[in-house]
Design a protein around this nucleic acid. Sequence first.
DNA 1: ATGACGGACCCAACTTTGTGGAAA
DNA 2: GTTTCCACTTTGTTGGGTCCGTCA
Length: 963
Amino acid sequence: MRTRSNSKQSSGKESTASAIRDVDSESLADMSNEAVDKLVRRVKGRGSSGKKKQDNRLQCDSAATGENGLKSNGKQVVDARVTWNDLDARGLAQDPAANDTTEVEGGGFQTAFQESDQEMDDIDWEDGSSSILGHVKNHPGDGIREVTIEFCESPDSAKRKPIRRATAEEKGLAELVHKVHLLCLLARGRIIDHACDDPLIQASLLSILPAHLSNTLGDSKLHAKALSPLAHWFHNNFHVVSSVSEKRSFHSALSCALETREGTLEELAALSVALFRALKLATRFVSILDAASIKPDADNYESLNQDTSKMHRGIFNTSTLMVDRPKEVSIPPKSPSCSEKKNVAETSSKASCKSKDNCSRSKKIQSNDSPPAVELKDNMVDAFPCEAQNNTSEECVTKKSQGSKRKGDLEFEMQLQMAMSATAVAIQSNKELDVKESNSNSSDVSSPFKRIRKNANEESSSQGISTALGSRKIGSPLYWAEVYCSGENLTGKWVHVDAVHDIVDGEQKVEAAADACKTSLRYVVAFAGLGAKDVTRRYCMKWYKIASQRVNSLWWDAVLAPLRELESGATGGMAHLEKPHADASNEHENVVASGLSDLPMPNELPSNVDLPKESGRKNDVESSGRNSFAATRNTIEDMELETRALTEPLPTNQQAYKNHSLYAIEKWLTKCQILHPKGPILGFCSGHPVYPRACVQTLRTKERWLREGMQVKAKELPAKVVKQSGKLKKVQFSEDDDYGETDSGVVELYGMWQLEPLQLPHAVNGIVPKNERGQVDVWSEKCLPPGTVHLRLPRVFYVAKRLEIDYAPAMVGFEFRNGRSVPVFDGIVVCNEFKDAILEAYAEEEERRDAEEKKRNEAQAISRWYQLLSSIITRQRLNNSYGNGLMPSNVQNTNNQPDVHVGSTQPPGHQKDAKDRKLNAPSMTLTDDHEHVFLVEDQSFDEETSTRTKRCHCGFSVQVEEL
DNA sequence: ATGACGGACCCAACTTTGTGGAAA
DNA sequence: GTTTCCACTTTGTTGGGTCCGTCA
């Protein structure tokens, strides 16, 4: 059947159909079959308008009978439905009074159906691949039989939906947005980094840090292991909450988070950085810059993922909503004390047990570190929330307070399972590491909850921040710290520390975790000292996956260049672990003295910090040593990142090799590429040998190499022979017909290794070697015959011609004009020895030419002035002679106001003067024999416009532009 | 879920070296 | 009769890159 794609109509039908859809399933199939058959017969009777129509009808027929036969429950999903009244004998004719809206529509439809044969032929019909299911309903009241066919968007139609691809403009816009977003995120990172350096926040953190923890960093060589207790403590004492809606500065948000011991992931990560910095560890704040996609369209999808809260809502809309979104989790504006908060939480039914726990715990923690037994329960509650970034925490925490504990627990387990299944891949990929991690997690777990807790812990350990609910970006690692551990490796290294999730040295897990949460590690940037450094290579092993999603590297490097300097300057002066500092106040001062003083932020130094001269001198000495160390540290890190870039693991899928920067397989080489030398084989992918990308050589034709100033060595065979394009072939064949050649239709390509520098014939005896067209193709300087020079001057060939010097026109390229490509000439090529003579002559010639042109212009101007004045005078005479009432009105006006202004520019003042003069001048009648007399004293000269105004006593004035 | 593969589309690169008629 | 100027028509093809859908 042919269905007309009329959305209005179909929607109307659908609404009707929905009203009458409660169908008796027993009779439905038969009745609908019958109805459809009748319709088909009627259409047949009227004569089909084409074979295609018939075919479709048959399809529809068979579909209706077949499908209905198979699915008799009346709930089938049909591709297309139309509702109309069966206007058979039992239909409209019998009971016109029963025509409800549906019937009217149906009638209309049918009328259109009957009357528009011609129209149907004319209109562009869409092939309905739909099957028809006739929903026939016997209305008990009216007895009208209706066949319901619904037009839904069939899979086929969806398939045929035209694919709209992004235009270049949209791509450009997307790239711009991407860049702006990146810049914003960089700025954000710097703000956070700056806040982490706040001495008060650092001092506050130190004040709540148990003394034994600050003492654990006493070794001169810091190891990653030493950071674990710190991370653990932080993890247990600070808790992730949903993002606060209130807008305030990050600095105050950080203070608030510190006070309430809970905050967003970003804030907590910043606090951890501040803590490490307070302990005088060289620390960076690391963030994934999850910028808008660089490609258009992707944003439609991305935008859903960008806003985690939105996304969260979307996800949980579909599942059982355990509680209302607890607003109290968001940090109150005036940062009330925990007790206040507790009250609020208790009084409002939306209380979060987490906040209670936090409060009680924080009280405990202030005196001592929490014992593991107490912690376990809390952790069980908060482990998942933390991992699920923001909102998930609320959901699982609040379910306790909801009272529906069982349901909530089930939900919790379900979510946990979802999360774990979503991250299963990552677990496998990091199995070894997980084993290590789980070994380190030696706490006993026996109860199911504890097991879950353990799993969650393992998950979080293995994934960074695991739970990817709904396979979205929830729970993705976004912020962490990097601490420089001088004791790691031989040279020291930057160690990944995610204190929020109690993960130390988990850089290899970040990618898996991000993968599991659908977050792309396009940009991982480390911030320190208001600077930034791209450390994506450290965390991203599958560079080929993100390479295309990153912005142009030149632009990115240019943006980061000044930030890198700041960063390297800052991180160089912060790692001095020789002397542990037990006293927090001392530490604060030391931090300020040794760390912040090196930062390029003079304003940041508190005014009350008075550095003793001695320590200042000591600092100078240290800083000189530090700078060299910093340089080394930076260099080492750069080398490490570079090494990672060069030792990327082989991708497992073929298509990754298409544009891989390091590896290639022969299959994905382009037409003009070849492997030379063909080896070494680095591995295999799906049976295809993998070669280094360095082996891929680009081939060109001889002519193309000539443009590069290279020529093919003698006796070199083409490295590759490819088919010529059809158009060229045609041209070639027509030429071949004349010459009888047969080996056309192919293009011979040569590689770089087959070339030598272009050796053109030398210029001899002042004669320029030319090509067959008597010219020199100057694609570049390399294409100039030795002993010649290219003079790119207009009209220089006249000079050469006049001096009878041999020259060749220099063809510099082609341009398309009038539908064909025409050569573009620019200057001439002459022998070196004539260069000076030609230039000299050219200068003279140009001078002469300029003078001539000036002379010509002046003569032309004088001539024009003469003509103009002559015509004015002639006109005036004519007016005087014949203008008595015979002239048109405008000419008469001219007579009455006989000041004629000549010249295009007349200053307003002049106009006014003339007007005044006109007004003041006595009305006079010009006599025929009056001749204007321009007295010298009546003349005025305007220097600005070089215009002289001559006036006759009769009022006539002439403006003359003086040359 | 993933990868291979093919089709469709966009876009950039490549191509490439006048001629006939009117007016002066 | 010769020289000069101007209009003609705004290429068209190919292949790489990318995206999407299908299939295994």
